[in-house]
Design a protein around this nucleic acid. Structure first.
Lengths: 247, 247
DNA sequence: ACTTATTTGTTCGTATGTATG
DNA sequence: TCATACATACGAACAAATAAG
């Protein structure tokens, strides 16, 4: 006996899970929606796509993980900011899980950040204005004073490097660099890596970076960036040697 | 009247959606699972986390999007490969959506790939062995013969650059570079960007790259890489100028 | 302060599709 | 062919958050 043959509207397929996420993405594209714009309600999407609410919700969960949509409870679903939050989550988990050598992940993160600044030395120098240099100097002063007071200065440090990378006007590099920083900050503590001991060396390197930038000396800039990351690389290498961490 | 105060087992919280994904991630970490390892069934996770099936499924969908888990229908849920597939999906969508200037996204992708090779010239040259150089030469020959036959050679091109980046032994850079390539291949056709016209120029640049690498000439290598990406940058700039695309 | 409507969050029950043996 | 285990999908109901009157 032919069982439950749908009479008229012959649907090709019951709309697989992937098709649903694709459908929602297509809706956003077709309607030229922008980050922050409101999407139809879940019920409307059910009707529109011809599937159950559970399936719609699962698809939304997928898109939410990619920051393609953003859900606000009791409010609605919006187009997401399209950030690299998924990259941060993925890399963070990889860092926490990493089988053989957790420190390799950290070393790679640092290497990428260094590359963004060292490999783009000429472009960064060319793009930095007098006001930028002044801001960078201020940030270094903040670091120095906080260091003297025995405080951390990671916030100013982060701002410093963000400013360098922002000068490139490459949003992808900016976000990738920020993501590497974010992941490092989350993973490093788990491996008992401490970096605020070579504070003086770090701050001096920052000063040399700004000096080289002000002088327009590309090679000196690149060298200073390399020296800046040296202590971090050293700590990671030391920790990798000594081994024992396993929380 | 106090309504529905749970009597005895005072649960701190009813386990929010985010806590569920966190719980599953924690399970993987606690049990030292590796990519490919089998996770408990959905039912078991329900019982273990004290929540319903739907919630577990939504959490799994989130983790699946990040490639932290991988679901095989009728088979089970496994620890994922922790690839950067989420980055590819996110960037691709960003490229397709990009509000003002879709070409800016492409230009940024290319800039990152170029940076990986140009900014790491010394490291790449130092790491390339004689066998690597031979393989690179073979790939160029493939490109040339396919070009003469009027065929595309993107596959050999991709292998060529993958080989360069692999020499760095930095898995993060390798995957980021591959991700940029993947996104470009998906997004570029939508914007009617064609790059297989300056084929001769491209292939010549590849030869100069290998020659410089064989000679150990860092500057020449970096210059050749720059020249290699020049036609791509030019096409994107042209398309950006002329504007009209909007499919 | 209270109510109501809207929308997402969560749960349960049931049926279906898929792979293994 | 049958049975089992698992993921997939659906629908209805209720809970919780938010906004507006």
């Amino acid at each position: 006996v032919a069982r439950t043959e749908v009479p008229s509207t012959r649907r090709e397929r019951p709309a697989r899970s992937q098709d649903v996420t694709e459908g929602i993405k297509q809706y956003i594209l077709d309607n030229r929606l922008r980050p922050g714009d409101l999407l139809p309600t879940e019920s409307e999407l059910c009707a529109s796509l011809g599937i159950s609410r559970s399936s719609v919700r699962e698809a939304i969960k997928t898109l939410d993980a990619l920051d393609i949509v953003e859900v606000r409870h009791g409010h609605g679903t919006y187009v997401g900011r399209l950030s690299l939050s998924a990259l941060v989550e993925g890399l963070t988990f990889r860092g926490l899980l990493s089988p053989d050598d957790e420190f390799a992940v950290l070393a790679e993160l640092v290497e990428v950040r260094e590359l963004f600044e060292r490999g783009m030395a000429d472009r960064i120098i060319g793009a930095l204005g007098a006001d930028d240099l002044a801001t960078l100097d201020e940030l270094i002063d903040q670091m120095a004073s906080r260091s003297d007071a025995g405080l951390e200065f990671s916030a100013a440090d982060q701002r410093f490097h963000a400013l360098l990378v922002e000068a490139l006007h490459n949003d992808l590099i900016r976000q990738l660099s920020a993501a590497c920083w974010d992941v490092y900050v989350i993973v490093a503590p788990h491996l008992e890596i401490v970096t605020h001991e070579d504070e003086k060396e770090t701050i001096d390197a920052h000063r040399r970076i700004v000096t080289a930038a002000a002088a327009g000396d590309v090679d000196a800039f690149a060298a200073a960036v390399g020296e800046h990351y040296a202590p971090v690389r050293r700590r990671i290498a030391e920790a990798r040697q000594s081994g024992a961490h396993r929380r």
